[in-house]
Simulated assay, not measured.
Amino acid sequence: MKLRNNIFTALLLAIGFILHQITPGILGGMKFDFLLSFIFISLLINDTFKNAMLTALLGGLLSALTTTFPGGQIPNIIDKLFTCITLFAVIKYIRCFNLNFFIVALIGGLGTLLSGTIFLLSAVFITGTPIPVKTLIITVVIPTSLINGIGAVFIYGAIKKALKISGIIID
């Protein structure tokens, strides 16, 4: 993996980290995880397994640093790892089709749903939750999935256009 690809991934995750940091916690300490949109964009632009693992580990650590969920540090790392591996496989399969905005929105939405569900289930097993899991899925995970699905389309479009204009080629 080339250094410029690692730097690009780190830059995307830094932007997502800042958005994740300034997002306030809501019901039960859960917060909308906008870092996920940038994780998905990183996987879409650079779809190598090494990048998926780098993105999973960095994304999990950055999410763990900013979590407001009680005991959410380990579940954040677990969910990013499983989500990135799963989406890596999905993206590799989808690459044989035309990558359009609908597919990007689907990856953003379903990836967020998968990530949120894994996070909550691992949090239940590790620390327990102050609010029922079903309530958290309905009030936090599903709305975040919709927002991240739409947001991923705009972010992906802007990043692809910026890369094209600047002449940067990510291999």
Rank of each mutant, 00 (worst) to 15 (best):
M30A: 14
K2I: 02
N46K: 15
T9N: 11
L99V: 14
I169E: 06
I103T: 15
G128Y: 05
F49C: 13
F49H: 15
N76H: 14
L81H: 09
G60D: 03
G59Q: 03
D33K: 07
A14M: 09
L58M: 15
I18M: 00
M1R: 02
L11V: 14
F82E: 14
K50P: 10
F38T: 08
L81E: 11
T86N: 05
G29P: 04
L113F: 13
I103Q: 15
C84E: 07
A52P: 08
T48F: 08
K2Q: 03
G167S: 05
D33C: 12
L136D: 02
I39S: 07
C84V: 11
T86S: 09
G25Y: 04
G60Y: 03
P75W: 06
L163I: 10
A162S: 04
T117W: 11
T68V: 08
T127M: 12
V133Y: 09
V141E: 07
G151Q: 03
Q73K: 13
G149L: 06
F119E: 00
I26S: 07
G116H: 00
I131A: 02
I18S: 02
I41P: 00
S37W: 08
L113Y: 10
L110D: 13
V90R: 02
G28V: 01
S42N: 12
D171L: 12
F119C: 00
I142E: 04
G59H: 00
I77D: 05
I45K: 15
G128E: 02
G108Q: 12
N6S: 12
I26N: 06
I78E: 15
F82G: 09
A64S: 00
G128I: 02
C96P: 14
L87C: 10
G108H: 12
Y93E: 11
S115I: 00
L58A: 14
